[in-house]
Simulated assay, not measured.
Amino acid sequence: MADPNSPARPFRPSRQMVKPLAELIDACIAPVLAKQGFAASDVVLAWPEIVGERLARHCEPVRLDWPGGSRRRYDEEVEPATLVVRVTGAFALELQHMAPVVVERVNSHFGWRCIGRLALRQGPLQRRPVTVPTIRTPDPAAVRMVDERVADITDEGLQEALRRLGRAVLSG
């Protein structure tokens, strides 16, 4: 039996106990997404990365409509689904023209042809629009320090890349 007067050992979780937050979120929202035809939360959570920040500000995925209304497993040979996308009114025409690009981006993200077409639904977005973070201007003294540190690099491309990286780090 442990001595009640001895200091307690700090709790250190084992690697088996620690899970990435994405796994926990996926497990929580998977049932809701499954009702809307999504087998994974990827398309919803990664929408800005899939279609780009500009498109993500004006549209969002709503559901996947599988042919015949069936929700099949991804490993089965199935006809591609229709991705229903909610889009702000003024942006609908532009998204209609970009539909083949969006379909290709979604399919590339998943690695197979799961989406055959888009169905657009005009209306207000259900979530807050994606905001692009503002970039602060770095201190001029810090910029000079970065320029001095990379001045000895002979490869001009590498030098410029390191200069941009240093300025981005200092302005972040």
Rank of each mutant, 00 (worst) to 15 (best):
N5D: 14
N5P: 00
S6E: 15
S6W: 09
R9S: 12
R9Y: 01
F11S: 09
S14E: 07
Q16F: 09
Q16I: 04
Q16C: 03
V18S: 05
V18T: 13
P20A: 13
L21M: 13
A22R: 14
A22S: 14
E23H: 12
E23L: 15
E23A: 13
L24K: 11
I25N: 05
I25G: 02
D26M: 06
A30V: 05
V32P: 00
L33M: 10
A34E: 12
K35L: 12
K35S: 03
K35P: 00
Q36Y: 08
G37H: 04
G37K: 01
G37L: 02
A39Y: 05
S41G: 15
V43Q: 00
V44A: 01
L45Q: 09
L45R: 14
A46N: 13
W47T: 10
I50N: 04
I50D: 05
V51Y: 10
V51A: 09
R54W: 04
A56K: 11
H58L: 00
C59T: 12
C59P: 02
C59Q: 02
E60A: 14
R63V: 03
R63F: 02
W66F: 01
W66D: 01
P67E: 11
G69I: 08
G69C: 02
R71Y: 07
R71K: 08
R72G: 04
R72F: 00
R73P: 02
D75K: 10
D75E: 13
E76C: 02
E76F: 03
E77D: 15
E79R: 14
P80G: 03
P80Y: 08
P80Q: 05
T82N: 03
L83N: 06
V84N: 01
R86P: 01
V87Q: 02
T88A: 11
G89V: 03
G89I: 01
G89N: 03
G89Q: 05
A90W: 12
E94R: 14
Q96F: 09
H97G: 13
A99R: 06
V103G: 10
N107Q: 06
N107G: 07
S108M: 11
W112A: 10
W112G: 01
W112T: 11
R113W: 00
